[in-house]
Design a protein around this nucleic acid. Structure first.
Lengths: 194, 194
DNA sequence: AGGGCCATGTAATAGGTTACATGATTGC
DNA sequence: GCAATCATGTAACCTATTACATGGCCCT
């Protein structure tokens, strides 16, 4: 279980309301951890009871009030303790792989459209990540480590966000390559294009 | 939800008992779909009630009896229908990515051991996959498509299992590369090795 | 005698999804 | 007028995980 921890990290990066968190879980953090608003509200409440986060009501004009959460000392300690625990399972669920093996017992070529759709989704994500990388990780600090410039101070938050993003980019590139392989394989079973 | 479908595929590839399925979910299928025996027994029971699978009791010598399941017509139809449905979400949970971003608020270098452990796991899996590829996908059929040999009949089951395995191989290679990147990044925050 | 494998399950709990609900504001 | 966005929640349900339970065989 780690939704609590994903929330802690997100709130450390920037305090916010349940609603704002839900939106972040649709973008940046959402790329490697999904959660719906119902889940987030439920967990936030528990975290508040446990003293992991503090909340304060922020009145707004023209909008409903929001409860802004920020990480409390107990939350920081909980994160720190979790970081020290080993995690192993990394249990995977690749529906598409199940489908591909299952297609052997149906019509393999019928899966081509589906696989093409997935490929497009991964292409779009890659484009999106690459744009984000240029937007957020080039510029002033980009030349860090360049010779004979005085090395700018290492910004852990930025560097670690960047390496996670590079992971996303590597993942999407790998998927696109593999889906091409899948498409080529499926095409061999297509009576129309032998 | 698709544990049902993963079980259907596995039983189509080879009929077996709940126990045998649980073991397969620790190996081949388990590489892209995890499930424990408790889950499998529960779902198998439901599938039997729904007429997706037929069971028969197989007495064994020196071992407890087992219930061997095989896919019934209704199960085949259910699989076929599922193959036609689009799947989208592919919701991801990368604990390690959360940890890496979280490490910015703790001691980044403290994560090095954990990341090295993960890297080793992926190295081991890769080795295992590559051995499986040589074992199962080289040999008689390996030269399929070679010029001027009469093309052997395409074996969909085999080819599709192979392309899924290639996906696993690509995934592990990508992960190893990325974890090296992560390690290099974390090392920059290590006061002992600056 | 103890551990591991074969084989099947129950029970309790935690986690996640879907559907439903409310209500104001902004933009077309 | 209608849809979308902001903002928060409840309720019911389904899935998944963990712990516990049984019992015989085989090997060392």
């Amino acid at each position: 279980m780690a939704l609590e921890h994903a929330i802690l990290v997100s709130l450390l990066e920037k305090p916010g309301s349940g609603y704002e968190l839900a939106r972040r879980f649709d973008r940046s953090i959402g790329y490697f951890w999904t959660a719906t608003h119902q889940q987030i509200y439920r967990v936030l409440k528990r975290m508040e009871v446990d003293g992991w986060v503090d909340a304060r009501d922020v009145p707004q004009q023209g909008r409903p009030d929001k409860r802004e959460y920020r990480v409390a000392d107990l939350g920081r300690a909980a994160l720190s303790s979790w970081l020290g625990d080993p995690i192993e399972p990394e249990s995977v669920r690749h529906d598409l792989a199940v489908k591909i093996r299952g297609a052997a017992f149906d019509d393999p070529a019928a899966l081509i459209g589906e696989v093409e759709r997935h490929r497009q989704v991964h292409r779009d994500r890659l484009t999106h990540y690459l744009a984000g990388e240029i937007r957020d990780f080039t510029g002033p600090e980009a030349a860090a480590g360049a010779e004979d410039a005085k090395t700018p101070p290492l910004d852990a938050e930025r560097e670690l966000q960047h390496v996670v993003l590079r992971g996303g980019i590597a993942y999407e590139r790998m998927m696109i390559g593999w889906l091409d392989d899948v498409l080529a394989t499926l095409a061999r079973f297509d009576p129309d294009r032998p």
